[in-house]
Amino acid sequence: MRLLKDLFYLFYPKLCAACELKLVENETSICTSCRHDLPLTNFLNYNDNKVTQVFYGRVLIEKGYSLLFYRKKGITQKLIQDLKYKGNEEIGIFFGNWLGEILKENNEFTSVDYIVPVPLHPKKLKERGYNQVTKFGEKLSEHLKTPYIENYLIRISSSKTQTFKSRFERFSNNDTKFILKNPTYFNNKHILLIDDVITTGATIEACVKEFKKSKNCTISILTMAYTE
């Protein structure tokens, strides 16, 4: 079996999602060199950092964190775009494992009851075939020992792809709407809302407002990347 596996990778080697060079044994998705080049945020205060500050005066956030900085034409952008538009869900697994290990070690989200993804509109989900944060969320769930649940928060509006909008258009976009099924299910619960990238926070803000329909529901935010 090992011989067959080695022969397969000889002819179809796994490539680094960032630099596209051949991965060596024990490397997954991203080579060691590119991993060292990733722009880590290294936020030390989970209650007050650039992620939580996005929502000041808008909605109340308990904690917030992003693993990487997202910069135009940078390595993070390439990875996220490969995840979203090229079907490379291994990137979500990679980030889920990495961030899951960090959070498990520092015990920052031990009070979370559920991990919930920002959903795609059903039409977009059908076109793409997957939500780019599903694998990310599933791995976080494994590390944090916290249930990952979908299909409670529903996206009921479909808007132009955020990637191709200007920052002002994204901020001023009020077309994205969500509905929370069975709000009482989340009464007195702490929700960890996850997404791939946070820019203006408009989409996440709309999600948080839905969860606020639940009694005494606390929200924390976790994303793969934060746009500088």
Rank of each mutant, 00 (worst) to 15 (best):
M1Y: 10
Y56W: 15
L67H: 02
Y56N: 07
K14A: 13
R2A: 10
K22Q: 11
H143L: 04
K78W: 00
S157G: 06
I154Q: 08
K145V: 02
Y148E: 10
F109S: 04
A225K: 03
G137W: 08
I102T: 08
G137Q: 02
Q81A: 02
T134V: 11
K139H: 14
A17R: 01
K213N: 12
I191K: 02
L125P: 05
Y185F: 15
L4I: 14
Y148C: 13
F69Q: 07
M1T: 06
F136M: 07
T161R: 11
K63Y: 07
E89N: 11
I102P: 03
N216T: 01
I156D: 12
N106T: 04
L7D: 09
T32S: 14
E228A: 05
K5V: 08
R128C: 08
I61Q: 01
M224Y: 07
K177V: 01
I102K: 15
C16M: 10
L68S: 01
A18F: 02
I115A: 09
L193T: 04
H36D: 13
M224P: 04
M1N: 11
T134D: 15
L140P: 09
K73H: 11
N42S: 05
I93D: 11
N174L: 12
Y185G: 03
I221S: 09
S158V: 08
R155V: 02
L3C: 07
L44K: 09
L120E: 08
N151D: 15
L222G: 03
G96E: 10
E138A: 14
S33M: 04
Y46P: 01
D196I: 01
V112S: 12
Q77L: 06
P13K: 11
E210P: 02
